[in-house]
Amino acid sequence: MERVLRGNAWRFEGILDVDWEICPIHEMMNVTGGFGGTRRMSYEEQLRVLGTHCLTKVDADFPKKVRPGDFVVGGEGTGYGHDHDHACISLRGAGVGAVLCEATNSNFKRNAIHHGLPVVEIKGVMSRVKTGDELNVDLAGGTLKNVTTGAVLTFRPYPGFLLDILDAGGLYPQLRDEAKSGKYA
């Protein structure tokens, strides 16, 4: 993954619950066959299917409008709710490059990183970014530059080992690479 991410912003106010606004839980259940589902579906297929439901509860056309690498910008309730990681698959499937928010919770942040999707908490992001703004986000440097307005915000940068997970595309791809190199053979 490029460590400076570039894309345009899509700003969402209010709570973004993983099980509702980001991707309704029943869509995940349709994919897996319910909670604890064991239906076979490849990861690529999950990305495609869940991506078509991404944020449609707040913007019905979002999956059609968002371009690869664009940013979802949210408030303090971003990724609210349960530990269900289908929301992260949905965001990635829709092509979202990173989620930038005022605050989130550990479940969402951890799941997202492990699926290769950066979630960055940046104080003031909601007041300095509007939909359509062009943004540059430097994960290692800890800066967000709003190219459209010139505003610059800073955040606690990701430590190296998390950047490595993102570079690999998530935990499973990283584990797969490590397994291929004989680490767990």
Partner: peptide, 12 residues
């Protein structure tokens, strides 16, 4: 609780 991939990663 952690995600499925993370639990496997922690085991490995």
């Amino acid at each position: 609780g952690v995600g499925g991939p993370e639990a496997v990663y922690a085991a490995c």
